[in-house]
Each structure stands twice: as C-alpha cells, then as structure tokens.
Design a protein around this nucleic acid. Structure first.
Length: 453
RNA sequence: GUGAAUGUAGCUCAGUUGGUUAGAGCGCCAGAUUGUGGUUCUGGAGGUCGCCGGUUCGAAACCGGUCUUUCACCCCA
C-alpha cells in the first residue's frame, strides 16, 4: 500500500456528522454571548513571538509552536550559537512568529493596539483555535478551540457575576450538568502572607491545586519538597481542611486572613459575588473552592473553573480576573475579566452523554430522485420553490440506478424522497416517500411542505 | 520534557512454541429485485501485518531504531 497520508500528532479532522454537532455547540455558546452584549472579534493564528513569550510562565513558553522565518534564515543566525547546537538560543534568531497559545493574550494585544477605537468597558467574544505543543492525552489536543468572553475596562464585580450567569445559561442550554468552582487569587496571596511565605505563592498554589487529586498528605510532602517550612505547612492545614457552606467557609476564612490586607480584600470580593449570585436565578451550583489555583499567573482576582458532573475530563471552562494584562503591552490600569469555554472538551462530553437534540443531525429534508435529464430539470424547478419556502432540499445529480439513489438518501438520513418520473409530470403530481415508515403518496407540489412538515 | 503500553482489510479485532496460500464480523461493490433504501440470500473486491534495519533455512510473531495512537507524570481547555 502506498504511504497513507496523515495529520500532525494531536490534531483531528472533523467529518460532516461531527461538524454539525460542533456547530451546534458553537452556535449555542455564541447565542448566549450575544444576549449579554458581547461582540465578536478575530485575531491572526500567528502572533509575533515577543507578544507570546513570557506570558504563560516557563512551562508555557516551552509549549509554544514557533514558526520558522522565511528565506535563508540560517545564514543570518549567530555562528557560535549554531555550533553549540543550543536549540533554545537559536530559536530566537530563526523564528520571530508563533501560533497563538490562547485567546486572552492576543486579545490584550488587540485592546492595546486598538485602544483609541474601542469604547470601554469593551465586551468581546472570540471563537478560534489555539495551539499547544503539548503531548496529547485524553481531552488534550495540540490544536483545539477556545470560546472566550472577556470584559476589559471595568473593575465592577458585576462582570464576574455576569460571567457566572453566562456559564449557567450555556451549560443549561447544552444540557450538561456542571459545578462552578470559584476562588480568588487575593485570598491565595493572603494565605501565603499569613503563613509567612508570601514569595512562594506560585509553588503553594500549584501544590494545593492538586488536593482533590492526590490528597492532603501528598500535597504537604510536595510543599515541603518545594522548601516550605514545617511551620508554614502547619499553619496551612486549617485552611486546606475548611468545610461547610460557602458562607461558613467565608466567615472562617475572614477570621484567618484578618491580618492580611489582600486576603481580606479577596474574602470581601468573594462575599460580594456570592451574595449577588444568591439573589439571582442561577441554577448551577457555585462552590467556593480554596484549592482552585489555575496555572495562568496573570490572574489577580476571581478565578473560575467549571467541571462536568457526569464525565471525568478535567475542567471544561475556566477563567478569571487579570488586573494588568494590558500593562505588559503598555496600557496601564485596564482591568479585565474573562472565561474560556473549552469547545473540544465540551464536544467530548456531549458525545459521551449523547446530549444532542435530534433535530441537530437533520440535514437534507427532502431528496428528489433523478430519473433522467428531462425529469431532473423538472425537479430542479420544484426543488427551487421548496427551498424558497425554507426546506432543505437536494436533487440527486446523476440519473443513477434507483437503488443507488435510495441508498444515498438512506445513508444521509434524509427523511423524505420525492419520485417524479414521466407519469408524475404528466399528472402534475409528486410521489413522496417517507423513508422511515416506507409509506408513500402522490401529492400536488404545493402540498409537499405540509406532508414533510 | 519523563515513564509505559499499542499498531494486522475502510472499521472493530482473531492469528497457537517462529513453519507452506494471514482470518472473522461489520462496511464496501455486484446480483437476486431494468421506478424503491433500511430486512434477507448469493457472489466479489480489498492486506509488502505502521515504517526501517537485524537475528533465522524461514518473521505478522523475536531484537533494535523510528513514527502513530493511548495512558500516567509535569503542566493544562
């Protein structure tokens, strides 16, 4: 056999059947976004590398796909670096573009670049693929879609509330049962401060983020490995084992963090968001989760994560507030908050749970069988009229054998087939066959809509 | 990036201690049925056993490398 063609590791093709399902997800999400006044934007697949580098931590930098410069780039590169075969050092000389890693950083770049054309608060959504040079795994791809909604230029916690409402509406609409986990970076910073390890915030958050997965003991040993004092770990224990309702946790947390200014601010923010949410008709459970840390280190306030209740797949949506993302690009004091729906994981969840409404998979409603050039032309006319009245109609292009045409209709899951041969044309009728029941009847063209409807 | 498993027909998978011509089910194509699919019956096509190299008289099977997919870790949607 000839070498079969293939696609890069961690990427996927999508068949028509998959695309109608994916589009259903995208359309549902978009509709909710628009209902809240968010407007779409798009940014290029590739960004300048200096826009991307340093925004996602060291780990993130490693996962960036870099694009080779055009032309004879090696000639211009530093000879000594080439000789040393230091890939990382050379990369900077032979590559100045990279594929976007997420939609938030390109968005921040967009806001700064177009600041004079935008009116703030600026609410946008963006649905595009992103790329990560990660090793593929369950629910992890190298190319995947994110559906981002962000508001920049407003400090109000109403935005956090609104994002929670959006999450609630999207997943209710899709029929996925989820729980929204909520935390606040300021609280985490306060905790680090109280236990006397303010500088170790990242290590602490990365470790406690794993609490649910690996358990308290392993978290403690990881913290100790990272060099945290036994005393600090000891002080952390009551915080890690906080339990009770959101309100109860907040009261206890408020006491623990009373000495910390940031910590108290974080508790107040959480309080306010949860209080407003309680008064609204949000069906989805919102759970205060102190172990929720999230990797992206540009978050400064609220952090969210959404988990599917019925499928084990990691988080399907996540986000948070970032006070100074545009600062790195030269625009100070613009706070933003946003979330990102992981379309591919949502797709996996929807597939596993078979949550698609039946009408989503309906494509063509009626197919005309082709009996020959003359009959076919007659059908083309009828089909055109039916399309004008909103039906999805196709005419089989070749006058192939009946069996072949019927098989085609059957495989494509077409509900009705129209048979229009010489006899029907002479009598001014159309024979409509219901492909599910097998029953068929002759009707006048103007009656077709009601037979199919 | 680290550790492990996997790869045989379009798909899902058999294939004995290394032994002659590599199988099944589903799907595909054709016929039974020249204006009737989805059911049934009959026949047919389709494989350099992921790729490269090695061991052997002989390799789908054993060994090495490489790629793919999957799982765990790191990290993450």
């Amino acid at each position: 056999m000839a070498q079969k063609p293939s696609i890069p590791k961690g990427t996927r093709d999508f068949s028509p059947a998959e695309m109608v399902r994916r589009n259903y997800i995208f359309d549902s999400i978009k509709e909710v976004f628009q209902r809240y006044g968010y407007m779409p934007i798009e940014t290029p697949a590739m960004e300048n590398l200096d826009t991307l580098l340093g925004k996602y931590g060291d780990e993130g930098d490693k996962l960036l796909f870099k694009i080779l410069n055009s032309g004879d780039f090696l000639r211009k590169a530093d000879e000594s670096l080439l000789a040393r075969k230091d890939s990382n050092a050379i990369a900077g000389q032979i590559s100045e573009k990279g594929l976007r890693y997420d939609l938030t950083v390109p968005f921040a770049r967009f806001v700064v670049q177009h600041q004079n054309e935008l009116s703030f608060p600026f609410k946008r959504y963006q649905i595009q693929p992103v790329w990560r040079a990660d090793r593929p795994q369950k629910g992890r791809y190298r190319e995947f879609f994110q559906c981002d909604v962000d508001v920049v230029g407003s400090d109000s916690l109403f935005n956090e509330v609104e994002l929670i409402q959006i999450v609630d509406e999207v997943f209710q609409k899709l029929g996925i049962r989820v729980v929204i986990k909520l935390n606040n970076r300021k609280v985490l910073a306060g905790i680090a401060e109280i236990i006397g390890e303010a500088s170790r915030l990242t290590d602490i958050t990365v470790a406690i983020d794993k609490l649910e997965k690996i358990g308290l003991e392993k978290v403690n040993s990881e913290l100790s490995e990272k060099g945290l004092s036994d005393e600090a770990i000891e002080k952390l224990q009551p915080i890690l084992s906080l339990s009770g309702s959101n309100a109860e946790k907040l009261v206890k947390l408020g006491e623990i963090l009373a000495e910390s200014e940031v910590g108290t601010k974080g508790v107040d923010e959480l309080n306010e968001v949860l209080t407003i949410i309680d008064a609204l008709n949000v069906e989805t459970g919102v759970e205060l989760d102190l172990t929720l840390a999230r990797g992206l280190n540009y978050y400064t306030g609220a952090i969210f994560e959404v988990k599917a209740i019925d499928v084990e797949i990691g988080s399907i949506t996540g986000g948070g507030r970032y006070d100074d993302l545009t600062g790195i690009f030269g625009l100070k004091d613009v706070s933003g908050v946003g979330i990102s729906f992981g379309a591919d994981r949502i797709f996996d969840v929807m597939n596993q749970l078979e949550l698609y409404p039946p009408e989503v998979t309906v494509t063509t409603q009626l197919m005309f069988v082709n009996f020959g050039p003359k009959e076919g032309a007659h059908c083309l006319k009828l089909a055109g009229d039916l399309r004008k009245s909103g039906l999805k109609v196709e005419v089989y292009p070749d006058s192939a054998k009946m069996k072949k045409q019927m098989t085609y209709a059957n495989k494509k899951n077409i509900g009705f087939v129209a048979l229009v041969g010489e006899e029907e044309i002479n009598n001014g009728v159309v024979t409509i066959k219901n492909m599910e029941t097998g029953e068929q009847k002759s009707v006048k063209p103007e009656e077709i809509t009601s037979v199919i409807g």
